[in-house]
Design a protein around this nucleic acid. Sequence first.
DNA 1: GAGCAGGCTATACACGTGTATAGCCCGGAG
DNA 2: CTCCGGGCTATACACGTGTATAGCCTGCTC
Lengths: 220, 220
Amino acid sequence: MSDPKTVEADAGARERIRDAAIDCFAREGFGASVRAIATAAGVSPGLITHHFGSKDALRAECDVEVLGRYRTLKDDAVDAPSDYLRGLFPDPGAAPVLVVYMIRALGAGGEAGRRFLDQMVDELRTVMKHSVEAGIVHPSRDEEARLRTFVTQGMGGMLVEFMSDPGASPEAFVARIMSPAHETLLPLLELYTEGLFTTSDLLDTYLSLRSTTPTQETED
Amino acid sequence: MSDPKTVEADAGARERIRDAAIDCFAREGFGASVRAIATAAGVSPGLITHHFGSKDALRAECDVEVLGRYRTLKDDAVDAPSDYLRGLFPDPGAAPVLVVYMIRALGAGGEAGRRFLDQMVDELRTVMKHSVEAGIVHPSRDEEARLRTFVTQGMGGMLVEFMSDPGASPEAFVARIMSPAHETLLPLLELYTEGLFTTSDLLDTYLSLRSTTPTQETED
DNA sequence: GAGCAGGCTATACACGTGTATAGCCCGGAG
DNA sequence: CTCCGGGCTATACACGTGTATAGCCTGCTC
């Protein structure tokens, strides 16, 4: 008690390692070495094994922690979705490390990325539902497919953009992505309000083809 | 002459290594070991160093080779862009290894990915220009930004989708992506022909904000 | 105040990596 | 036939990685 920092550090050395790992993974990628994480946490490499057993186990715990933090962070901000466009991009400006961690997870593959994707689809589903009911957004013939497509392409765009300069700090990247001067904003607004094609020929032919072979369900 | 394959292979051991490397990189990622590449090429690991000097140099040569092949492959097929939607997605169904290689390069970061992106922007520029001039596609207030956005999000979507199951073979992945039954097709057709928003409020406010602060040019 | 328990560190080990080096082996020239 | 040259291989080295093991040292208990 006379040294609360030590006490807290002792009590939470494990969490300190986890947080340092999240930070390192976001900044250096998941190839960040155990030794680098240990240094960032101010502990010895052996302690990581001692507490988590393996690097993969540490990674898994980081994954659930990031997902949990992101979820609560979204739940807290759910009351003020004044910007519907931002709502369609499932990422807030806050917590850049979390965002970059998830983006990197998407690019690294594996189950973590898939869970992150599902989570964002869930969020977008809510926003989209409200927007459609409010008459702001057109309904879709396949709402779930639209949700997945929007999330995949939106996050994928961020991933590609991030990987174009992977050395950038999470803070700098998120600031750039979220800036109203970002060059993506105008094209997307145009696309969302005006569409791209001048005629509905392609959609019509696709729909007619689809109705011609109706029971062509591919469930895998 | 009795066995041209062997003759060619003998004459081009260096090229055989390069081709094997392209294949390994596409299938296993750029972390594929020199030994694995050597085995795939049917040579010893030392020969790779002997011919290329280092793994990075081999990777660089693979990059330019892939870019070159992709370019010629596109130049050959430029005469038959009967499907304008496919034209907007800058990837053909042929040469799955090339496509996956480029997708992986986009996710790995570095200059190679950036060059691939530029190449695809160039291709899409041509298609988009023709489509706009033919009156099929709405013009954009910032054509270059739209090109970059479309390519980034389209390729990013593929990257995310590929990384959801990185073990899939390039052939299987490209077949899935290009299938008319792919769940992305309908949402994108809807978006491209009908837009997303029912009103132009968001675009209007953005444009008015932009005209209020006109000389807000961010040239980097 | 002595003893002890456990978080924590330091060291070491096994392994895979990229790369350098010495030698083999086949083809061709004198 | 001899010799030699270079594409090619086999071996080895240095390094970084994740992980296991033995010991320290602080703080708590009796």
